[in-house]
């Protein structure tokens, strides 16, 4: 690193990996893809560290990089799938898990930006203002993307898995 701040980068990233992995996992729904996404994100952070460290809210800036990397991967398509991943770990059995898998598959079909907004708002529990900052858009856009995303999710689930879910408390 040209300005000799590599130690600062390592210290920062070391402390943030658990949070980055969690957000990446919520976006990807898959351990290996999540780790690949975090690996790519921290590599980009290294390259841009001189700018990142000056950001007003470093964590949000870093989460923006992660979300954009996720969106870029979704756009680019299959050949971005990284090599070198081992087979998925076996999913635990059970009806709740099956439901989650159906849900996860449905969420993956929601347009990527709407998907990211839903994940940040409802799975990562972030307020609208923060989601807007991470997504680089207005709060109004976050609200409309939320509505569109939920509508899309309902439509996908309704079309393909009608009757699969019980709309009560989570099991």
């Amino acid at each position: 690193m040209a300005d000799g701040s590599e130690a600062g980068y390592v210290a920062y990233v070391s402390g943030r990996i658990p949070a980055l992995r969690r957000l990446a996992y919520l976006l990807c729904g898959n351990d290996h893809q999540a780790d690949d996404l975090v690996q790519e994100t921290i590599t980009k952070i290294f390259v841009r560290w001189s700018q990142v460290r000056k950001a007003e809210n470093i964590d949000n800036y870093v989460h923006t990089i992660l979300v954009r990397t996720f969106l870029d991967d979704r756009r680019r398509g299959w050949w971005k799938v990284l090599l070198g991943t081992s087979p998925e770990r076996a999913a635990p059995a059970g009806a709740a898990v099956e439901d989650r898998e159906v849900l996860r598959a449905a969420l993956a079909k929601v347009p990527p930006r709407q998907q990211a907004v839903l994940v940040l708002r409802f799975l990562d529990d972030r307020p609208v203002a923060e989601v807007a900052e991470i997504m680089g858009c207005s709060q109004g856009t976050v609200k409309s993307q939320t509505a569109h995303g939920l509508t899309a999710l309902r439509r996908i689930l309704g079309d393909q898995y009608a009757g699969t879910f019980t709309y009560g408390e989570a099991r």
Partner: peptide, 9 residues
């Protein structure tokens, strides 16, 4: 329903 997906890696 969506929040059922809130799990950890």
């Amino acid at each position: 329903l969506l929040q059922r997906l809130a799990s950890s890696p």
